[in-house]
Design a protein around this nucleic acid. Structure first.
Lengths: 226, 226
DNA sequence: GCGAAAGCTAAGGGATCGCTAAGGCCCGGA
DNA sequence: TCCGGGCCTTAGCGATCCCTTAGCTTTCGC
């Protein structure tokens, strides 16, 4: 279900829109100020933002520029009827669509679906490629030679971390702190076991490595086979 | 010149720190609130952020998390003397250093330089080249004439240590303490054996040295062949 | 030519690593 | 609330690799 963030300072409008959009099948969060909106963008990672202009704490164009700098979330801007000149500026500045106030929930819903459809068909590619191995953190899918790998959460995180550092040797300590989020303590054997499982799913063994090379005494390295 | 962003709500402090840091050779911008700080981060892309806790519009930990989500700018946190518990939390949350209020501009300047130095030297290319020999500690790969050398951990560490001091004579004692991490004790023969193995893998002998030259009575030297 | 330093080979033992299996935790469904 | 399944951790054993030590030989300096 697509999640929508609504940035709107007028509480009654915010409440009724939230309710209406939820009824129409969106997961909706909302924020009354630019600052709360930014925080929500970072923490909740919404799929789309509806941004009402005229916020108390920040100019709409500024906020839009900041949103663009932070992520590529699509933004629908809501503006008053007489602000069409600014509207054009905002579209140029990277807004994906706009609605003119007052607008109905049905109208907004239609715009949201349209924008999401458009964005979905041109998905941004965050995937990493190492040889015939592809790792996409956005969808949390990994494929080898085009065939999907069935990985557990840890296995995926591990593979992704290694793929992001392809060619480099990574110590087990580093993996424990970065992938496992254990700053100290924890045992290397845990990593060993997961590496073993990864190897199996990658169709290789420690004796016949292809992607996952152990560097004895140091750690492990993910690299394309030569 | 490194650019520093100072996020601090107290205007007099902000002013005086800005002036002091400029005198010490930093390009300084400043922001009185979390929101302005975020805007400045996005727009000015500072090299480092000094973040004073106790901002009016946002909790320090939240802001730090947002900063981290947006970019990897190093952050120095300033806190009151009695906030040490929170300090630890913030360091765990990704702060790079901290200063305790009240602090002098000189002190802050020192911290800034230290953090920038640490960050600058981190992602550098660390590979060493001696003649046709290349040693990269990051990937732990060594090549000779482009062909990879299959080295054991100790052999690699030994070669790397010598390559970092190419042309210099290094004693076996020094190698035992620095490469083997044995401050005292240990026998030179151990080093001899490893040097022998290294020679073999480098395709040379003690009689016909190319890179690895023994200086009788003193130690060994790694140098490009003439 | 002698002694000390260095080179090299071989072998034993220790550390690391690979993999399997078992136990426990968490979460979702009944 | 109980149950079941998936997933992670821990434990253990076997295998492999690598480092050290020992011993002999060679080389160098005097």
């Amino acid at each position: 279900m697509p999640s929508v963030l609504l940035i709107e300072d007028d509480a009654p409008i915010r409440g009724s829109l939230t309710r209406s959009l939820r009824e129409r099948g969106h997961a909706v969060s909302s924020a009354p100020t630019a600052l709360d909106g930014l925080r929500s963008v970072v923490e909740d990672r919404p799929d789309l933002i509806v941004l009402d202009l005229g916020l108390p704490d920040m100019d709409g164009a500024d906020l839009l520029r900041m949103l663009r700098a932070v992520s590529r979330v699509p933004v629908i801007v809501a503006t008053a009827r007489d602000g069409e000149a600014e509207m054009i500026r905002l579209l140029d500045a990277g807004a994906d669509d706009y609605v003119v106030k007052p607008y109905s929930a049905a109208q907004l819903d239609a715009r949201i679906r349209a924008v999401l459809r458009r964005v979905d068909t041109a998905p941004e590619d965050t995937s990493l490629t190492v040889g015939a191995l592809r790792v996409d953190p956005r969808t949390r899918e990994a494929t080898l030679d085009g065939a999907p790998l069935d990985l557990t959460p840890r296995e995926f995180d591990l593979l992704h971390y290694l793929a992001a550092r392809a060619g480099q040797v990574v110590t087990k300590r580093e993996l424990l702190t970065e992938v496992w989020q254990i700053p100290y303590g924890g045992t290397d054997k845990t990593v060993d076991v997961h590496l073993s499982w990864l190897r199996r799913k990658l169709g290789e063994t420690a004796q016949q490595p292809r992607y996952l090379q152990t560097v004895r005494g140091v750690g492990v390295r993910l690299a394309a086979p030569s």
